[in-house]
């Protein structure tokens, strides 16, 4: 005997099968980090929401999850910023313009950019964590009047490894957006902030009663940032983090990305801090 859902499933397109995309413009951001534009070889680029991700497949090498880092209103291509940290990401950073790539997506729950309307928005990014936040920044800048104060706090390892440095300068030209950048280590010729990014939180100006915080970076950096935000008076249900775990299927079927009761791929990657706070600091969950 077969439930109704069983018969319905057989006729749908297979979410395991990648679509073919072609690499357009490339930009080397850092010595190991590249931004690629990917356009569909046929049909339209699907819509995406800031904070979502795609699965990128390199022929014969494998597939990895990569957050969208481009403008969601640009309907011609997807933009991904990829750092060479493994076999597949290395292969992606070595692709040339015109190469083809398999792509599944977009997947996952994004940043609460609509829910944040009317609030101050504090975006806390560490290292490559600025990439998944960039679509949210584009969205907020394009709809600036809908938001209160907008604060970007960005931490890097050192001044040389700073992602989107030129774009940060451009954003800084907006008088109505506050940007503080800090580096973990610097030599004396660096005139900016030195220290970890959570240390910028108590120095920033925002209305703690009416702020939404979006945090993305290495997990330890997010733990410390969430604590600093909570200490600054932002309630845990208004703090959002973009989580990362091993992903194979991206659609909740392979079990790999479980984080306690949640699947990062379909319940996240963007998760409310209040939802995961209990297990966030437990080892090896």
């Amino acid at each position: 005997m077969v439930p109704e859902s069983v018969s319905a499933a057989a006729s749908l397109p297979d979410p395991f099968v990648p679509q073919i995309y072609r690499v357009g413009r490339l930009r080397r951001e850092l010595h190991d980090t590249v931004t690629l534009e990917l356009a569909p070889s046929a049909g339209r680029r699907p819509a995406f929401r800031p904070g979502q991700f795609n699965m990128l497949y390199v022929f014969g090498v494998g597939e990895i999850a990569v957050s969208l880092s481009g403008d969601s209103t640009d309907e011609t291509h997807f933009v991904h910023t990829v750092r060479d940290v493994g076999a597949v990401s290395k292969a992606i950073t070595e692709l040339g313009t015109g190469a083809t790539i398999g792509l599944r997506g977009p997947f996952g729950v994004g940043w609460p950019v609509e829910a944040a309307e009317g609030s101050d928005v504090v975006l806390v990014a560490g290292g490559l964590g600025l990439a998944p936040l960039r679509p949210a920044i584009y969205h907020i800048l394009a709809n600036r009047v809908r938001y209160g104060r907008v604060v970007i706090l960005f931490g890097s390892r050192n001044p040389h490894d700073m992602l989107y440095r030129h774009e940060l300068e451009e954003w800084r030209q907006h008088l109505d957006i506050s940007i503080e950048v800090t580096v973990d280590h610097a030599e004396a010729d660096w005139h900016g902030n030195v220290g970890v990014v959570p240390a910028l939180i108590p120095r920033a100006t925002f209305d703690r009663h009416n702020t939404i915080a979006l945090v993305c970076g290495p997990e330890v950096m997010m733990r410390y940032s969430a604590s600093a935000l909570a200490e600054a008076g932002v309630p845990p249900e208004r703090i959002y983090l973009s989580m990362e775990r091993n992903m194979k299927c991206a659609i909740g079927l392979c079990g790999h990305c479980q984080f306690g009761p949640t699947f990062i791929c379909k319940d996240g990657p963007v998760m409310q801090f209040a939802r995961i706070a209990k297990i966030f600091a437990i080892r090896e969950v």
Partner: peptide, 8 residues
Amino acid sequence: QAPIVFAT
């Protein structure tokens, strides 16, 4: 070595 700034 050049001076290392560890905090501002």
